[in-house]
């Protein structure tokens, strides 16, 4: 069996720990190296996952034994890392959102195409079994012609981090979660967003520099309408990290998806702050996604969610910000 050697460039995004764990569990991947501009964080991760630590990612990219890299840096750093990785001939798994500016996204796609490497986006929901069952039901024609797709991806508020620093994240809740739902909707409808309208709320957490609540309405080219709520609106005491729900209405029926409902719950006397907690027994989306990334390289096929899908999500995200700023809908494709 062909084995793919992998490195992770930055553990800034907490998903990196889950991906590293998944690589360690795969039979056809070897997790070799870590780079991080936060030396302490990077060394700790390298120790934990028994990999080499190389502070500068550019030095790491020079290693010829590395076939593929994961870009889990702060959002604004994705562009330079993806471009450098492509130029070094490495296949890339990039955390969402692909980029925080459209010109970055286009430069990334061009570099990837020129180098002939794979670029896969961490749109993990495409690997969620329940979300896949919806895709299959839609394709079977179970609900007829699609008419309305509404989605939520609402998060429990989390600890202070670079997500709250717009210079590193490129934005708040809109930047963080628009892309997951847009990707599922594009996947299900087979269409692209034509018009975006977003209202950004006054914050739930007034101390944040970035927005934490928003609502987006979408019109797709094939006349499907949709909406997105990706707010960080669950309180700290919420019983799980958040949700992904979708209501898919067609001419013949409706599908409701609550993707992370596969849980056992506990109610513990010693956890007065979070009395009820959900414990997932559902599918391991991170592992399935990482496994598919490796298999795409081994079998030389295109990822399910590739660079173009990342770019389209970024475009809707940026259109959302523009719409909220102007108080008007924004028509896509955006003017350059």
């Amino acid at each position: 069996m062909k084995t793919v050697n992998v490195a992770i460039l930055s553990f800034a995004h907490f998903h990196a720990y889950s991906y590293a764990r998944a690589f360690k569990e795969l039979p056809n991947a070897k997790f070799l190296a870590v780079s991080d501009d936060d030396v302490k964080r990077g060394k700790a991760a390298a120790d934990r996952f028994e990999a080499d630590f190389i502070g500068d990612y550019k030095q790491l990219l020079k290693r010829s034994d590395i076939d593929a890299v994961v870009v889990t840096s702060e959002n604004v750093k994705h562009a330079e890392m993806v471009i450098a990785a492509a130029e070094a001939g490495k296949h890339i798994l990039c955390e969402k959102p692909l980029a925080t500016r459209l010109k970055d996204a286009d430069a990334m796609l061009a570099a990837v195409e020129k180098a002939g490497v794979k670029l896969q986006l961490c749109y993990v929901m495409r690997y969620s079994r329940p979300a896949l069952m919806v895709k299959e039901a839609v394709e079977r024609g179970e609900v007829g012609k699609l008419r309305v797709v509404t989605g939520t991806n609402r998060l429990r508020r989390f600890e202070d981090s670079w997500f709250f620093n717009p210079a590193l994240s490129g934005g708040g809740a809109v930047m963080d979660h628009t892309v997951h739902l847009v990707d599922l909707m594009r996947w299900y409808t087979g269409s692209e967003v034509e018009r975006v309208y977003t209202e950004i709320g006054t914050n739930i957490d007034k101390s944040l520099e970035v927005e934490d609540s928003f609502l987006t309405l979408l019109s797709f080219r094939n006349v499907v309408i949709g909406s997105i709520d990706g707010s960080w609106s669950r309180p700290e005491t919420f019983y799980t990290w958040g949700d992904v729900t979708l209501e898919v209405l067609g001419s013949e029926g409706m599908i409701f998806l609550d993707a992370f409902k596969q849980v056992a719950y506990t109610c513990l006397a010693e956890e007065p702050k979070n009395p009820v907690q959900w414990h997932s027994w559902g599918c391991d989306v991170d592992k399935e996604m990482v496994a598919d990334f490796i298999n795409c390289i081994v079998e030389d096929r295109e990822p399910k969610a590739a660079g173009h899908d990342g770019r389209q999500g970024t475009e809707v995200t940026l259109a959302s910000y523009l719409s909220a700023h102007k108080g008007k809908p924004v028509t896509l494709p955006m003017q350059r």
């Binding site: 008419r147 309305v148 509404t150 309208y197 209202e199 950004i200 709320g201 006054t202 609540s213 928003f214 609502l215 987006t216 309405l217 309408i225 949709g226 909406s227 709520d229 209405l249 409706m254």
Partner: peptide, 22 residues
């Protein structure tokens, strides 16, 4: 089927969905 977003004067935003298409 309608999806609407309301913005209230004090700043609250609201998503309202109503349907006879189920």
């Amino acid at each position: 089927h309608v999806l609407m977003v309301l913005r209230f004067r004090k700043g609250c935003i609201a998503h309202v969905e109503a349907s006879w298409a189920m």
